[in-house]
């Protein structure tokens, strides 16, 4: 793994997930499970606090039920992620693999700060395309 999380350029940057509830990037998206992949959506246009990060992490843990699963964190459009929140999200590396989904150069910088700073404990990559991210994560699903 390089120092920077891999960036998968994609023309479909504006592709919105089926799970997105509202808005261009969706607002206050809930945590879902899609084909064995946990999808965590951070609210676009908002500051992500530690409290919010913890509630998202809790939702993801509840879905995973103790089994390491591939995880997609959608950070598209978030305003900022504070230091404590980054520490909580960084702990998501207990998953099978983590894909960070961003749309803008700002998302890319934020995503690298979320996972950066220390050697990742699971495969981590940054994607600008949701479908590519999901496809990459699918490779980490347990063999049936």
């Amino acid at each position: 793994m390089t120092d920077e999380i891999l960036l998968h350029d994609d023309a479909e940057m504006l592709e919105a997930g089926a799970e997105r509830a509202t808005g261009a990037y969706g607002r206050g998206g809930q945590t879902l499970s899609r084909d064995g992949i946990t999808v965590v959506t951070l609210p676009a246009g908002e500051h992500v606090s530690k409290r919010l990060a913890e509630s998202k992490a809790e939702e993801a843990r509840a879905l995973a039920a103790g089994v390491p699963r591939p995880l997609l964190i959608d950070i598209r459009g978030v305003k900022s992620i504070d230091r404590d929140a980054r520490a909580v999200l960084g702990a998501a590396q207990m998953s099978a693999a983590v894909a960070l989904l961003g749309a803008s150069p700002v998302d890319r910088v934020l995503g690298n700060f979320v996972m950066g700073g220390q050697e990742p404990r699971c495969p981590v990559a940054f994607f600008a395309s949701r479908s590519e991210a999901l496809a990459w994560l699918a490779g980490f699903l347990p063999v049936p």
Binding site: S80, R83, P105, V109
Partner: peptide, 25 residues
């Protein structure tokens, strides 16, 4: 405060904010 453009300059601004926060910490 980054603008809503979220372009490269905003990315630099975000990076600046994050690094300043790290430095402060």
């Amino acid at each position: 405060e980054p603008s809503e453009a979220r372009d490269e300059v905003d990315a630099v601004i975000t990076g600046f904010n994050l690094l300043a926060e790290e430095l402060e910490q």
